[in-house]
Nucleic acid binder design. Structure first.
Lengths: 215, 215, 215, 215
DNA sequence: GATGAATGAGATTTCATTCAT
DNA sequence: AATGAATGAAATCTCATTCAT
């Protein structure tokens, strides 16, 4: 007891905090999965707790309300997602069209293969209490920013044609969020091909014609 | 009035059935309104009953469960929607691009102005009891068909370029279903302009460049 | 209109009354069937109405409450039943043991073959509103009286041995009321044999040994 | 106290489980009491909750539906009942007729004095969901077995005469299940005498004449 | 940190009963 | 005679939330 308290609490995230962090991650990931898959109302805290093999009470130890848990889930998911996109090498070199294409492809890939319905949480403008509103918006912005930068660059360089960058991005995200629903039943190559097809289709939103399309 | 009553009672639904039909329509329309505006979970039967100024019990006189009522509401909503699209004169004459544009514009307009949450009901694969499953799928198909016909015609005539008709339509519907979330806060002219902008953007999915775009 | 009203209402049950009577019989029989089979609470007026292919409202035209309908059902059933037993020739001639045996056999036969669960209505001391209590009791008494007379005669003549006539009759009725549950799954000969077996067993309650029993 | 805590925690259910078990017993006992006294439909969860001085919601913490609670109640009731019969010393020594008589007397006594409506729950073939069906049947079998053993022994030793063991047991149980209805209004000595009378009467089913009967 | 227990508000559903037509 | 419509009370069930331990 005394030994542990001797460790200066401010020095660095101690073992304890790290463990807490990991636990939270676990909860948040599971929650994201469930909410992403079935939506806000259709998932009860009981469901989340069951999946984690803990009790509802425990969830309240980490989160003070359902809304907060959902928000955290969205946030975590969003951050990880954005980080992966930002870490994508192919998104940083070569012609802008290729870079955007790589970005879209990866984004759809993650959605389809890993978080089948998570994107719905970003899209649906649930009536969050004002407190959560801000966090979610910020998230969305950061996530969007990466796409936006590329699109703007493409427009500036004449490589892309758009009506409005905003509108284009919104349509792009809307479509990407639905891809899991369309590709869920496919597997292996077929799924890869489907992802590719959606990527091509979405590139048309910035005026980039597919290499081999039915015209 | 007299002309109508001249029709023999056995030839057509009698007065009573017609009245019942009208009542059902009233209920279903109200329900469609509410579910279309706020979604499945956010609307209770109490809400529906209140709006109709009847008791919950009465709803059960006509529908044997919430699901059945919602399905009927979706069906009505879908039928009315499709009918309005089909009745659109601009969708039947002129160059195929103009026709598709008119169709998309109208579709978005209805979604944004009248049923902000309705398209979610179609999109989200709610776990309906198998019975309802079929009705909803049929609806979706019919609704989609109208768009599909135009796109296929455009592709055949060389006016459109697409990767795949299926993929294109899916992206188009996905984006359209989100428009209410984006335009809800706008009013009057601003909203009209936004609808126009989305329409233009979506036309790019079939390879039709906007007339005045930032390139 | 005038013609019909010309018939003196008091003269005799006119066509109208007879028809009404028949309708009531129909309702009451159906109700007895259902209540007998599933019990008071488990049967709703909707169920009764459905089976009769009329509406609940119609039932209220003839009966002013659920309780009244059930009471009538019991009464009708009981009367018919008693009448059939009283009309049984074999119950009126020969040695008293044979007469009682015939009576019991017939009673079980009717229960098993025609009113699979009606007897439960007599037995279960459901909390009837006090008003109906009396009528039901009277019925039960009359029905019971026929058996009682025979048992008393047998006891007087030394043919039967019982602890108490009351107790004996109660046990007999209790057992008879359960026979449908036990014989329902049998058909044809097997059922006949089962009925016979129960009859033999119940005769033991009055001290009459079965002709061929395992001792 | 110390002795009990000395038992290693893994050897037996821990304190928590035991407490939970006790709570469940409390609920189930109360429920058994009520359902046993008034029947399935006549008892609402509100009634059970009120009697326990908790809320309905709490019941759902332990049981996932009314049916499950009732089934548990029946099970508990049945087990306790059977255990009491099995623990009856008089049922294990002396002539078989005396043993059966003691058994029947005790059974009727419990029914009349403690669970006036419980036997109906066993008898009435309520349409339980299949899950519960099995548990109840098993119960009934175990309960019946004890009587059956004695009857068979009596038959084998020539002490009893029956048509068929099955039929005899069925009639016996049917009659016993009705005794509460007949004795409910009696108290004290009168009730004791009634129980005795029924016992004597039922012994006749196995061919054992009452010591002092009107012949 | 975590859990079991409990709560209470609200949701869906059922049903006897009434009533205008 | 009969019906369709409506009601309202009560029942079953769900779930976010709290709290003592």
């Amino acid at each position: 007891m005394s030994a542990e308290e001797a460790v200066p609490a401010t020095a660095a995230p101690g073992r304890v905090e790290r463990k807490r962090g990991r636990r939270i991650q676990e909860i948040v990931t599971t929650a994201a999965d469930l909410f992403g898959a079935r939506g806000y109302d259709a998932v009860s805290l009981e469901d989340v707790a069951d999946r984690l093999d803990v009790t509802k009470g425990s969830l309240y130890y980490y989160f003070s309300s359902k809304d907060e848990l959902v928000t955290a889930a969205i946030e975590t998911l969003g951050n990880e997602w954005t980080a992966r996109l930002e870490a994508l090498p192919a998104a940083h070199e070569g012609p802008v069209a290729d870079r955007l294409r790589a970005l879209v492809r990866e984004h759809i890939g993650i959605a389809v293969r890993e978080y089948p319905a998570a994107l719905r949480l970003f899209l649906v403008p649930q009536e969050w209490p004002a407190a959560q509103q801000a966090r979610i918006k910020a998230l969305r912005r950061r996530h969007d920013q990466f796409f936006r930068t590329l699109v703007e660059e493409g427009v500036a360089s004449g490589a892309f044609t758009v009506t409005t960058v905003d509108t284009t991005l919104q349509c792009m995200h809307a479509a990407m969020s639905q891809t899991p629903g369309w590709c869920a039943h496919l597997t292996g190559r077929a799924q890869d091909r489907a992802v590719e097809e959606f990527t091509d289709t979405l590139m048309m939103l910035v005026g980039v014609a597919p290499t081999s399309a039915s015209s």
